[in-house]
Computed example of a mutant assay.
Amino acid sequence: MTFLWALVAGLVIGLLAKLVLPGRQPVPLWLTVLVGVVGAVVGNALASAIGVRHTDGIDWVRHLLQVGVAAALIALTSSAYAGRRG
């Protein structure tokens, strides 16, 4: 069940990352989910490193870090994927 939640979180984070980037990113859904999962893991690690992983209420800073990392990864993979596709 944890794997399923990781995929759902990766989908949401990946789609939010694509939403904050300007223009259209020619990245398929499977790659968006994969980048979202990686963004979530790296964002959690960064939040732990700076001490904001667990706060009172909603962890906005952690979620912003997750989406920010995923957006950076989408930007990198988007240009690489577009170049590969021709």
Rank of each mutant, 00 (worst) to 15 (best):
residue 84 R to C: 01
residue 28 P to A: 10
residue 58 I to P: 03
residue 29 L to P: 07
residue 59 D to V: 01
residue 48 S to R: 13
residue 79 S to R: 15
residue 26 P to W: 00
residue 37 V to S: 07
residue 81 Y to G: 04
residue 58 I to R: 00
residue 25 Q to E: 14
residue 57 G to K: 00
residue 27 V to F: 00
residue 71 A to R: 12
residue 59 D to S: 05
residue 49 A to T: 07
residue 30 W to L: 11
residue 33 V to G: 08
residue 46 L to V: 12
residue 84 R to G: 13
residue 80 A to P: 03
residue 61 V to D: 00
residue 42 V to H: 02
residue 37 V to P: 01
residue 47 A to R: 01
residue 28 P to K: 08
residue 45 A to M: 11
residue 19 L to D: 15
residue 31 L to D: 09
residue 75 A to K: 14
residue 9 A to G: 11
residue 40 A to V: 05
residue 59 D to A: 06
residue 59 D to L: 03
residue 31 L to S: 09
residue 66 Q to T: 03
residue 73 L to G: 13
residue 72 A to R: 09
residue 7 L to K: 01
residue 67 V to N: 01
residue 33 V to N: 01
residue 11 L to M: 15
residue 65 L to F: 04
residue 82 A to Y: 04
residue 71 A to H: 09
residue 36 G to M: 05
residue 6 A to S: 04
residue 50 I to P: 11
residue 1 M to T: 05
residue 49 A to L: 14
residue 20 V to I: 15
residue 83 G to V: 06
residue 39 G to Q: 07
residue 27 V to K: 08
residue 54 H to V: 11
residue 70 A to S: 09
residue 4 L to T: 03
residue 40 A to Y: 06
residue 23 G to K: 10
residue 74 I to Q: 14
residue 78 S to N: 11
residue 45 A to T: 08
residue 74 I to N: 06
residue 9 A to K: 05
residue 2 T to C: 00
residue 35 V to G: 09
residue 34 L to W: 10
residue 55 T to K: 01
residue 42 V to P: 03
residue 11 L to T: 15
residue 22 P to I: 13
residue 67 V to Y: 01
residue 81 Y to C: 10
residue 51 G to I: 07
residue 86 G to F: 03
residue 32 T to A: 12
residue 78 S to L: 02
residue 84 R to H: 11
residue 45 A to P: 07
residue 39 G to N: 06
residue 7 L to V: 08
residue 38 V to G: 11
residue 71 A to P: 10
residue 81 Y to F: 10
residue 23 G to E: 08
residue 19 L to A: 15
residue 11 L to D: 13
residue 52 V to W: 00
residue 55 T to Q: 04
residue 34 L to P: 11
residue 27 V to N: 03
residue 35 V to F: 12
residue 27 V to M: 01
residue 26 P to N: 10
residue 72 A to Y: 13
residue 83 G to N: 06
residue 27 V to Q: 04
residue 60 W to Q: 01
residue 57 G to T: 00
residue 20 V to M: 13
residue 74 I to C: 07
residue 58 I to M: 03
residue 73 L to D: 05
